[in-house]
Nucleic acid binder design. Structure first.
Lengths: 211, 211
DNA sequence: CCTTGACACGAACACGTGTTCGTTCGTATT
DNA sequence: AATACGAACGAACACGTGTTCGTGTCAAGG
């Protein structure tokens, strides 16, 4: 493919920079002013070329209708996930459902490339304590869960144990009339309990640890 | 704080949805049309209220100059980090430096809230094998590293061992005329080696595991 | 010397878009 | 009933912004 002219390249760069500093695309005249181009038609001319090469997309007759193709974070499929609490032995998980009032809550943002297709019903918890090192989860880690009340055998889920009054993260196995909660670490013994003693909070999706 | 009226809330929601589907903000008339509001001035009136409550920011005399405050990905400080290879015993890490040609590379996107201030010189590696379970890092995990050639004592770094011809992730301690590479798991023995046998690749910043 | 095409120019033109202003309607408040 | 005020209305108005068109420059090729 033929190379871009210097002018086209600088236009492309300017659009990228502009989008970094503002949350809206530039106008043709913004580009013209910044790059000291004498006429808006020159900008339009070059934008058409860039569009032809599929580097940008233009929405005709719409002001600031310039979009960058392959923009890092521009075609942003970023999901904001609320960190609604902590998970630790003895502490209940606040019921997720008010995912809207993210005002006072900490949130994290992840690109969809790190998640499976379904990005809904996700919430995050900060792990307190070392109660789950056997599952390669450390103190301070953030675990990302998909809210659901049932799960398949063998999935790692956060379960609320009614009798023990604590939440834990284990592999779930329904075995006849009892439930086996298997730690990831094979040196630890599983927990056996009655099915109506466990209340599944959500299924483990992702673990994030910031050093 | 007084609650938002139904109309103001739906305006706010519409702006958020619009920004999800397009890469530019809506006009006042976009909002008017969608919400079946009779006049643009009503939209303006409510936008002023939203602006007063610091829920949006408006750039006067600029078309589509509406920005959402606290926007998920709107005030997007999302960093795209290239996954430039794998880390596993016996395999060298490709030297990062061509971070620009992310065309063919897998990348991940993270909000800056998960990272410290410095978001530059970051790269990611996919972990192959179980050679680092002692550091709570599993097969298939993605480790995020900041490229640097030196480090402080006690930091977890990816080091290239010249003699052994392998890369490993360990805590680094410079002790006199030798270097101690300490696994995170205390049941494992540390590696002692000469300082000029180790070549620091980068410092561990984040661990991400997708189930 | 004359075309041809890529690129650039400047100035209108038409339409998109934010802003303003006078007005009305409902609901408390006095 | 009179008043005040938040909320909404409709219609202009002014300016922001994309588009178009005729023209000019310059290098490559006939």
């Amino acid at each position: 493919m033929k190379e871009l002219s210097r002018r086209q390249q600088s236009i492309l760069d300017f659009i990228a920079n502009f989008l970094d500093e503002n949350d809206y695309p530039p106008t043709i005249r913004d580009i013209q002013r910044e790059l000291d181009i004498s006429s808006t038609s020159v900008v339009d001319y070059n934008l058409k070329i860039l569009e032809g090469r599929n580097l940008i997309r233009r929405n005709r007759n719409i002001s600031r209708g310039i979009e960058l193709v392959n923009r890092p974070g521009g075609n942003r499929k970023v999901v904001r996930i609320p960190v609604i609490g902590q998970i630790a032995a003895g502490l209940p998980i606040p019921v997720p459902g008010q995912l809207e009032d993210a005002e006072h809550n900490e949130t994290i943002e992840l690109g969809t490339d790190l998640l499976s297709d379904n990005t809904r019903d996700l919430f995050a918890l900060r792990v307190k304590g070392l109660s789950m090192v056997d599952a390669l989860i450390n103190d301070g880690d953030i675990v990302l869960l998909r809210q659901q009340e049932t799960c398949e055998n063998g999935e790692t889920v956060a379960v609320w144990l009614l009798d023990e009054h604590e939440t834990t993260l284990k592999k779930f196995y329904h075995e006849g009339d009892r439930v086996r909660l298997q730690p990831a670490n094979t040196t630890m013994d599983p927990i056996y309990t009655a099915p109506d003693n466990v209340q599944i909070q959500g299924k483990l999706v992702t673990v994030i640890r910031s050093i």
